[in-house]
Protein backbone atom coordinates (compact mmCIF):
# COMPACT_ATOMS: atom_id res chain seq x y z
CA UNK A 1 0.00 0.00 0.00
CA UNK A 2 2.81 2.36 0.85
CA UNK A 3 4.45 1.41 -2.42
CA UNK A 4 1.24 2.22 -4.23
CA UNK A 5 1.07 5.59 -2.60
CA UNK A 6 4.69 6.25 -3.29
CA UNK A 7 4.04 5.43 -6.92
CA UNK A 8 1.18 7.90 -6.95
CA UNK A 9 3.34 10.57 -5.39
CA UNK A 10 6.13 9.97 -7.89
CA UNK A 11 3.56 10.19 -10.66
CA UNK A 12 2.27 13.52 -9.39
CA UNK A 13 5.79 14.89 -9.08
CA UNK A 14 6.66 13.75 -12.60
CA UNK A 15 3.48 15.28 -13.95
CA UNK A 16 4.05 18.62 -12.23
CA UNK A 17 7.69 18.69 -13.25
CA UNK A 18 6.89 17.92 -16.86
CA UNK A 19 4.13 20.52 -16.90
CA UNK A 20 6.51 23.19 -15.64
CA UNK A 21 9.27 22.29 -18.04
CA UNK A 22 6.97 22.60 -21.00
CA UNK A 23 6.03 26.11 -20.05
CA UNK A 24 7.80 29.17 -21.26
CA UNK A 25 10.72 30.64 -19.48
CA UNK A 26 13.83 29.64 -17.71
CA UNK A 27 12.49 30.02 -14.21
CA UNK A 28 9.76 27.48 -14.76
CA UNK A 29 12.32 25.24 -16.36
CA UNK A 30 14.45 25.28 -13.24
CA UNK A 31 11.45 24.67 -11.03
CA UNK A 32 10.33 21.80 -13.20
CA UNK A 33 13.74 20.21 -13.19
CA UNK A 34 13.86 20.40 -9.41
CA UNK A 35 10.53 18.61 -9.18
CA UNK A 36 11.70 15.98 -11.62
CA UNK A 37 14.79 15.43 -9.52
CA UNK A 38 12.66 14.80 -6.47
CA UNK A 39 10.50 12.44 -8.49
CA UNK A 40 13.46 10.44 -9.71
CA UNK A 41 14.97 10.21 -6.24
CA UNK A 42 11.74 8.98 -4.77
CA UNK A 43 11.34 6.50 -7.61
CA UNK A 44 14.79 5.19 -6.80
CA UNK A 45 13.82 4.95 -3.18
CA UNK A 46 10.89 2.86 -4.24
CA UNK A 47 13.16 0.27 -5.80
CA UNK A 48 14.27 -0.96 -2.39
CA UNK A 49 12.10 -2.52 0.23
CA UNK A 50 10.29 0.16 2.16
CA UNK A 51 10.95 -0.42 5.84
CA UNK A 52 9.67 2.06 8.31
CA UNK A 53 11.91 3.28 11.04
CA UNK A 54 15.13 1.26 11.13
CA UNK A 55 18.07 3.15 9.68
CA UNK A 56 20.80 0.92 8.30
CA UNK A 57 23.18 1.53 11.13
CA UNK A 58 24.37 -1.81 12.36
CA UNK A 59 26.29 -2.61 15.47
CA UNK A 60 29.43 -4.60 15.82
CA UNK A 61 27.60 -7.74 16.85
CA UNK A 62 24.90 -7.88 14.25
CA UNK A 63 26.97 -9.62 11.66
CA UNK A 64 26.42 -12.95 13.27
CA UNK A 65 22.67 -12.63 12.71
CA UNK A 66 23.09 -13.37 9.05
CA UNK A 67 22.15 -11.37 6.00
CA UNK A 68 18.59 -12.55 5.65
CA UNK A 69 17.51 -11.48 9.09
CA UNK A 70 19.37 -8.20 8.81
CA UNK A 71 17.57 -7.42 5.63
CA UNK A 72 14.17 -7.70 7.21
CA UNK A 73 15.03 -5.52 10.18
CA UNK A 74 16.88 -2.65 8.53
CA UNK A 75 16.06 -0.30 5.72
CA UNK A 76 17.60 -1.20 2.37
CA UNK A 77 20.95 0.65 2.37
CA UNK A 78 21.92 0.34 -1.27
CA UNK A 79 19.17 2.53 -2.76
CA UNK A 80 20.02 5.08 -0.10
CA UNK A 81 23.58 5.21 -1.26
CA UNK A 82 22.48 5.44 -4.87
CA UNK A 83 20.02 8.21 -4.10
CA UNK A 84 22.64 10.10 -2.17
CA UNK A 85 24.87 9.98 -5.20
CA UNK A 86 21.99 10.98 -7.44
CA UNK A 87 20.96 13.86 -5.17
CA UNK A 88 24.43 15.28 -5.11
CA UNK A 89 24.88 14.94 -8.83
CA UNK A 90 21.58 16.63 -9.51
CA UNK A 91 22.53 19.39 -7.13
CA UNK A 92 25.66 19.99 -9.18
CA UNK A 93 23.71 19.97 -12.42
CA UNK A 94 20.97 22.20 -11.06
CA UNK A 95 23.53 24.68 -9.80
CA UNK A 96 25.11 24.70 -13.22
CA UNK A 97 21.78 25.30 -14.91
CA UNK A 98 21.10 28.11 -12.50
CA UNK A 99 24.42 29.65 -13.50
CA UNK A 100 23.49 29.26 -17.15
CA UNK A 101 20.18 30.96 -16.54
CA UNK A 102 21.93 33.76 -14.74
CA UNK A 103 24.39 34.26 -17.51
CA UNK A 104 21.73 34.15 -20.15
CA UNK A 105 19.81 36.80 -18.32
CA UNK A 106 22.93 38.91 -18.17
CA UNK A 107 23.45 38.49 -21.88
CA UNK A 108 19.93 38.90 -23.12
CA UNK A 109 17.90 40.42 -20.35
CA UNK A 110 15.20 37.92 -21.02
CA UNK A 111 13.60 35.01 -19.31
CA UNK A 112 12.70 33.41 -22.59
CA UNK A 113 14.38 30.16 -23.40
CA UNK A 114 16.47 29.81 -26.49
CA UNK A 115 14.35 29.32 -29.54
CA UNK A 116 11.23 30.73 -27.94
CA UNK A 117 11.73 34.19 -29.24
CA UNK A 118 12.62 32.64 -32.53
CA UNK A 119 9.40 30.72 -32.32
CA UNK A 120 7.51 33.93 -31.92
CA UNK A 121 9.04 35.33 -35.04
CA UNK A 122 9.31 32.18 -37.02
CA UNK A 123 6.00 31.86 -38.73
CA UNK A 124 6.40 28.24 -39.59
CA UNK A 125 6.82 27.18 -36.03
CA UNK A 126 4.21 24.66 -35.02
CA UNK A 127 4.00 25.94 -31.48
CA UNK A 128 3.59 29.60 -32.15
CA UNK A 129 0.12 30.99 -32.09
CA UNK A 130 -1.36 33.72 -34.11
CA UNK A 131 -2.07 36.10 -31.27
CA UNK A 132 1.54 35.99 -30.23
CA UNK A 133 2.78 36.79 -33.64
CA UNK A 134 0.61 39.82 -33.75
CA UNK A 135 2.41 41.19 -30.75
CA UNK A 136 5.68 40.85 -32.49
CA UNK A 137 6.39 44.41 -33.58
CA UNK A 138 6.24 45.68 -30.00
CA UNK A 139 8.26 42.84 -28.67
CA UNK A 140 10.87 42.99 -31.39
CA UNK A 141 11.93 46.53 -30.52
CA UNK A 142 12.63 45.43 -27.05
CA UNK A 143 14.81 42.62 -28.24
CA UNK A 144 17.32 44.14 -30.55
CA UNK A 145 19.91 42.73 -28.23
CA UNK A 146 18.60 39.34 -29.15
CA UNK A 147 19.50 39.76 -32.77
CA UNK A 148 21.88 36.86 -32.46
CA UNK A 149 19.01 34.64 -31.69
CA UNK A 150 17.41 35.60 -34.92
CA UNK A 151 20.52 34.27 -36.56
CA UNK A 152 19.54 30.98 -35.08
CA UNK A 153 16.25 31.07 -36.89
CA UNK A 154 16.38 29.07 -40.01
CA UNK A 155 13.59 30.82 -41.77
CA UNK A 156 15.52 33.80 -43.02
CA UNK A 157 14.52 35.03 -46.45
CA UNK A 158 18.18 35.34 -47.40
CA UNK A 159 19.10 31.89 -46.32
CA UNK A 160 16.18 30.41 -48.14
CA UNK A 161 17.14 32.26 -51.27
CA UNK A 162 20.61 30.94 -50.80
CA UNK A 163 19.36 27.42 -50.50
CA UNK A 164 17.19 27.78 -53.55
CA UNK A 165 20.12 29.19 -55.43
CA UNK A 166 22.03 26.03 -54.64
Amino acid sequence: MTAFMLALLVGVLFACGAYLILQRGQIKLVLGLSLLTHAVNLALFGTGTLTRGAPPIVSEETESLGAAILFTSYADPLPQALILTAIVISFGVTAFIVALVFRRDALTGSDLLPGELAAVINTSDPFAEFSLRMKLPDAADDYDILQYELDEVYDHPESEAEVAHE
Partner: peptide
Protein backbone atom coordinates in the same frame (compact mmCIF):
# COMPACT_ATOMS: atom_id res chain seq x y z
CA UNK B 1 30.45 23.81 -24.30
CA UNK B 2 29.76 26.95 -22.33
CA UNK B 3 33.28 27.97 -21.47
CA UNK B 4 33.75 31.40 -22.94
CA UNK B 5 30.11 32.23 -22.34
CA UNK B 6 29.14 33.80 -25.65
CA UNK B 7 25.41 34.19 -26.30
CA UNK B 8 25.20 31.39 -28.80
CA UNK B 9 27.10 29.11 -26.44
CA UNK B 10 24.68 29.79 -23.64
CA UNK B 11 21.76 29.39 -25.98
CA UNK B 12 22.97 26.05 -27.23
CA UNK B 13 24.15 25.12 -23.77
CA UNK B 14 20.73 25.34 -22.15
CA UNK B 15 19.16 23.10 -24.74
CA UNK B 16 22.06 20.72 -24.52
CA UNK B 17 21.97 20.51 -20.75
CA UNK B 18 18.24 20.10 -20.38
Amino acid sequence: LTIGGTPSQINGGIRYVV
